[in-house]
Simulated scan of single mutants.
Amino acid sequence: MCVDDVHSGIALLESLVGGDIMSERINLLQGLRYPTPEEFRKLGVALADSWEQIRFEEIGDRHEEDFFDMFRNIELGNLYREFNGRVFNTEVAYKLVVFFYNRGIPDEPWFQSPGKDGRSTDYFPRFTEDVHFVNHFWFYHYADSFYSQFQGIVDFLYHVIKVKYDFDVKKNIGLQRVISFKLEEVEPELEKVLQDYRKKNSL
């Protein structure tokens, strides 16, 4: 790697974060704002029913005669609450992705060659205001958060299934496939939904 390659990489990173890396002047807070409560509520209207369908109904107080059933219901109740909390965090990340996208990210074309003033390449040539860089950075930040948290929901769901149906499965590579095989015997419709998801996402 030559010096020119290093400077080209720095130029790209500066474009991505909207700052001057060489002089350590990176300000991702300039022009940053988050949605108001009313804006936040409106961001979720279109998918409100979908998010609600993902959540578990929490288990109320039950008086089980069998000690093991009582213990399992307590554990399931805790898992349901944790799962619903994860869904809430994922919903927040999704809304913030939409919010920063709607604020404006003129990233097409994302580069221009040759660039201006003798530069070989200009990245994000239509980013003419600081807020464009800010929106771009935080959009991708929350997009990454959304994807990671959504996948975390799927992984955690398999753990809930394992506990709910008392599957004797050890944590190992291929855990989801083993659980799916067992689930097909007791809840084939649920397994069909999960199977469709795995096919769409190549799991």
Results as ranks from 00 to 15, higher is better:
Cys2Pro: 12
Cys2Ser: 14
Cys2Ile: 11
Ser8Asp: 14
Ile10Trp: 07
Leu12Phe: 14
Leu13Ala: 10
Leu13Met: 14
Val17Phe: 09
Val17Tyr: 02
Val17Trp: 02
Gly18Ile: 03
Gly19His: 05
Leu29Glu: 14
Gly31His: 07
Gly31Lys: 02
Leu32Ile: 06
Arg33Ser: 13
Pro35Val: 10
Thr36Ile: 02
Thr36Cys: 02
Pro37Gly: 03
Phe40Arg: 13
Phe40His: 09
Arg41Lys: 12
Leu43Ile: 08
Gly44Ala: 01
Val45Lys: 14
Val45Leu: 12
Asp49His: 07
Trp51Cys: 05
Glu52Val: 03
Phe56Ser: 02
Glu57Gln: 13
Glu58Gly: 07
Arg62Val: 09
Glu65Ala: 05
Phe67Glu: 13
Phe71Glu: 15
Phe71Ala: 13
Ile74Asp: 13
Phe88Val: 08
Asn89Val: 05
Thr90Asn: 07
Ala93His: 08
Leu96Asp: 11
Val98Trp: 04
Phe99Ala: 02
Tyr101Trp: 11
Asn102Val: 00
Arg103Trp: 08
Ile105Phe: 05
Glu108Leu: 13
Glu108Met: 12
Phe111Gln: 11
Gln112Arg: 12
Gly115Trp: 10
Gly115Val: 08
Lys116Ile: 05
Ser120Ile: 08
Ser120Arg: 15
Phe124Met: 12
Arg126Glu: 14
Arg126Lys: 14
Phe127Ala: 03
Asp130Ser: 06
His132Val: 08
His132Met: 03
His132Trp: 01
His132Ser: 00
Phe133Pro: 01
His136Pro: 00
Phe139Gly: 00
Phe139Glu: 02
Tyr142Cys: 00
Ala143Thr: 03
Asp144Thr: 11
Phe146Ser: 02
Phe146Val: 10
Gln151Leu: 10
Val154Tyr: 13
Leu157His: 09
His159Gln: 13
Val160Glu: 04
Lys162Thr: 08
Phe167Leu: 06
Lys170Tyr: 05
Gly174Met: 09
Arg177Thr: 11
Arg177Ile: 07
Ile179Gln: 06
Glu185Pro: 01
Glu187Ile: 07
Glu187Asp: 14
Pro188Asn: 12
Pro188Gly: 05
Glu189Gln: 09
Leu190Glu: 12
Glu191Ile: 01
Leu194Cys: 01
Asp196Met: 08
Lys199Phe: 07
Ser202Thr: 12
Ser202His: 09
